[in-house]
Design a protein around this nucleic acid. Structure first.
Lengths: 326, 326
DNA sequence: AGTTGTATGTCAAACGTTTATCATTTTTAT
DNA sequence: ATAAAAATGATAAACGTTTGACATACAACT
């Protein structure tokens, strides 16, 4: 069987109390006993049982991460960063792919509660989850409204949309469309569209909004995009995420539209993946490092003090990544 | 405070024993009491404390996932799939990004032990982790040798390399290089190189092996590739992963090498991401769905019966995805 | 009538750890 | 030598749940 506190105590020739004191650095302890105990722990490969510890009242040092799907590179990078930061602070991460399914999201919430997580970072795309309120658990949200007392961290979507439109115009485009996700209240892509629209109308251009349902498969999305590009003579397109921008670039190639002379293209997100493997793509970069750091930092504050006052919304600046597509 | 078993019992007007019986479906129970208890649980938003349950002997239903870095799309997709399958089977996932750092990997192992996970699926890239042996925990490995009693699931790397070489030759290439990771014993990319070499030598061609250190940044890798392509007149390149293939394609474009007429290109992995967003890339697809299913299935077998006999190695077939680059 | 099966209850031990209390011993300082 | 401080131990309660032992009650069969 696995070694337990008692076994360590026996091997070290001390009492359980002392071993526990050593582990928790509690009360008076001589250097000599500490060493004896550590030696015994090493020899037995002893690992304190976290279940028992947290039953006692200790934190579980577990954090739940709810995102729609980490096979999306944007979330993959975000989750990867968050995990790294949390691990460095001695927290572990329980991963939840909600797949944008409200029921799954609810199930995940239940499960995380049952596992006594110390807090949750959520960045899924569903809305109307009333449940987030009732659990008196520290929660921080990424780029999405969950409930009144849940702080939101996001990048400056409005300015991002504005910047994208500006970039397209300054690159010579004057018939500029936006390809974005279905807009429901609270969705982050709304801000991007609004920024885009604001820039265009302020500069005497007409916005052309095309909503591509988020859940569409890439193949279907490609078809839609092809139809759109064939039936309008846009010379500039702002895609509200980089993956859609890639699809658009593919379609442009099929249609023999040269980029950027005939069609200018701007994406959104600017993950490391895109910057590294598609350096040509002009895009709006979300500051993923800062976002991750802030998300974690806010969560830990809430965990340390459940009532600590936090802002309702934290907006981080975006950055234009100038490629060759616009 | 959070509701506990006792509160549910009081509200339902039954004993704690009965509530516990309902939850665990244990012993005789009338439909009426069951309903009463469920109603009370719902009303209180009761969630059994998993810490207490597992202390008492129940499984934690937690599985540790150790991968080098999920910001790599290949691992992102793999982890995403594994998580989905496990969630459907009522398991939760603790995510570990080992970053190919043996010390981090050791720390993660310790942590997972401390959290009483029921098992581990590991697909990191380090070797020589003796620790995997001593923990008497069900472990399944993806594409990597860990220890004698740890079953390995992998795709048919040798055949993949063979197929890639064959595809390049049949597309008209006769000076065919391979860009692969540093080869250390046990690394999966070795098989791919061996398959490539075997095909070439058997067909009277000379293998040209270029090892690009795995940890090189994409920018440095790009420089390396550029140097290589400038100094040799290869007309076919097999990259042992798709991301390197993308870099190679970028470099080819810079050097005005047309693909596939002047340079033929084959990648490896064939994630959904690549298939969806780079449908042109000819690549060798690893069966990620089958791999995930098998990894989980083997792990659950081991969890159910720690001594169940499993094969040392499970090799799944790969598939050529014919694009336009070779 | 007695037997059996079903349904519930009471009680207490157990899981592995933490922590408080009280007691005791050893060390150090004066 | 004496007091104070430091180091350890023994004991037990607590965390929330499961589970077994045992008791009781009521129904439905013979």
């Amino acid at each position: 069987m696995k070694p337990k506190l008692n076994d360590v105590a026996q091997l070290a020739g001390v009492s359980v109390t002392t071993v526990s004191r050593v582990i928790n650095d509690h009360g008076y302890l001589s250097e000599r006993t500490k060493q004896k105990v550590f030696a015994a722990m090493r020899e037995l490969h002893y690992q304190p049982n976290n279940m028992a510890r947290s039953l006692q009242g200790k934190n579980t040092q577990l954090v739940g991460l709810i995102f729609s799907d980490i096979s999306n590179p944007f979330f993959a990078e975000l989750v990867s960063r968050i995990e790294k930061i949390l691990f460095a602070k001695n927290y572990k991460v329980i991963l939840c792919n909600s797949a944008d399914d409200p029921q799954k999201e609810r199930d995940y919430l239940q499960m995380l509660m049952a596992n006594q997580v110390d807090g949750i970072i959520a960045g899924a795309h569903n809305l109307g989850i009333e449940e987030y309120k009732q659990y008196g658990l520290p929660i921080i949200s990424f780029d999405r409204y969950l409930s009144d007392n849940v702080p939101i961290v996001s990048s400056d979507n409005f300015n991002g949309g504005w910047l994208a439109a500006q970039t397209l115009q300054q690159a010579g485009a004057d018939k500029i469309a936006i390809f974005t996700g279905k807009s429901h209240a609270g969705s982050p892509t709304n801000g991007r569209r609004e920024g885009y629209e604001a820039y265009l109308t302020q500069h005497g251009l007409t916005p052309h909004v095309h909503e591509l349902p988020f859940e569409l498969s890439p193949a279907l999305k490609t078809m839609e995009i092809r139809t759109i590009l064939e039936n309008h003579d846009y010379n500039g397109v702002f895609c509200s995420d980089d993956l859609t921008a890639l699809l658009t670039a593919n379609v442009a190639q099929q249609l023999k539209l040269t980029i950027p002379t005939e069609l200018r293209l701007v994406g959104y997100d600017g993950t490391a993946l895109i910057r590294n493997y598609h350096p040509n793509l002009t895009t709006i970069e979300q500051p993923l490092a800062d976002i991750s750091t802030l998300l974690v930092s806010l969560l830990l504050q809430r965990i340390a003090d459940a009532n600590c006052k936090l802002e309702a919304k934290y907006t981080l600046p975006v950055k234009l990544i100038k490629g060759t597509t616009a």
